[in-house]
């Protein structure tokens, strides 16, 4: 016979195990009925037994909804106090979910957000509802207007074949680029298609709303897609330089200069950065980037012709 201190109550265990299933979003009809039927001697139908426990949770203040043979908890009895700053950040992440093209990553973030939503108190729910209408990252415009374009871009990335893209940026001539589609990059106000050009070895970010025409060739490409750019940073810039996402430090030199290696940054973005570094930056390789820098400066200077 068990000691008194070791005795436990079966109903008590079941109600908490039921709650655990609900918290983990695993409360399928099958699992719940299996759980409740264990050690149950009395002749009671599954429906009656289930109702008994559902009523218990209901009286305790937990709202439960059954959908597609699964029970879902609409409110948690154990809340986490979130203030407005927390809720704004949570909604910022929720509104950014669409920026993730990878389904697995998206699902994991959704899981995390759901585990937070379920712990909201009434004030938090009301506040979040008021925020819902003010989407922080509003890409609905892109999704409605460029849905087909986005799907096509994603398809081309998966297939890994070369594409020929014609696009035109504001006040610029039309450009036709042949390259390998790398990824779609989502920004707050735009979505860019990253194309790696094998001709010059650089990545170009093309805003998808600027694409005029796009077609796929049947050439499959298997080579690596990132171009390596090496530059020397000098003077005070070298001392205070903070490495960016695409960079790593190759070495520090005796005079205080540093050698930085950059792999895969968009060529135009990189150039606009290096131009600002002026005499504190020296491009070591590739030579083609030096040439691109010269062309960019020429175009800047041509703004002042006549």
């Amino acid at each position: 016979m068990a000691k008194l201190s070791e005795k436990y109550n079966d109903s008590c265990i079941k109600i908490f195990e039921f709650l655990k299933l609900l918290y983990n979003d695993e409360a399928t009809y099958e699992k719940v009925t299996q759980l409740l039927a264990v050690n149950y001697d009395e002749k009671m139908t599954t429906a009656v037994l289930l109702n008994k426990y559902l009523n218990t949770l209901k009286v305790f203040g937990i709202k439960i909804k059954k959908k597609n043979h699964k029970f879902h908890m609409l409110n948690s009895p154990f809340k986490i106090p979130f203030d407005k700053i927390d809720l704004q950040s949570i909604m910022l992440f929720k509104n950014s979910l669409n920026l993730l093209s990878d389904e697995k990553t998206k699902n994991k973030l959704e899981e995390l957000l759901s585990s937070l939503f379920i712990r909201f108190d009434e004030n938090a729910k009301t506040y979040v509802e008021s925020l819902d209408n003010n989407s922080y990252i509003d890409l609905s415009f892109f999704y409605s207007k460029f849905e087909t374009q986005i799907e096509l871009c994603e398809k081309y990335i998966k297939e890994g074949q070369k594409v020929e893209i014609t696009y035109q940026e504001k006040n610029k001539p039309e450009i036709t680029l042949i390259g390998i589609p790398v990824e779609l990059k989502y920004y707050r106000k735009k979505i860019c298609y990253v194309i790696h050009s094998q001709k010059d070895g650089f990545n170009t970010e093309i805003p998808i709303d600027k694409i005029i025409n796009m077609k796929q060739s049947c050439q499959t490409v298997s080579q690596g897609l990132s171009t390596t750019v090496v530059y020397r940073l000098k003077g005070s810039l070298a001392k205070s330089y903070k490495l960016k996402e695409y960079e790593y430090l190759e070495r520090s030199e005796a005079g205080g200069s540093i050698i930085v290696v950059n792999k895969g940054e968009d060529c135009d973005i990189l150039l606009s950065r290096l131009i600002r570094y002026n005499e504190c930056c020296e491009i070591i390789s590739p030579k083609s980037l030096k040439e691109k820098l010269r062309q960019t400066i020429d175009r800047m200077l041509s703004n002042y012709d006549n």
Binding site: S96, L99, T105, I137
Partner: peptide
């Protein structure tokens, strides 16, 4: 019932953060 967060969930959060 305390909140526990999985490594994969944080990785997703980090991924979104890096984008935005």
């Amino acid at each position: 019932f305390e909140l526990t967060i999985a490594q994969e969930q944080v990785s997703s959060l980090v991924k979104v953060y890096k984008i935005i």
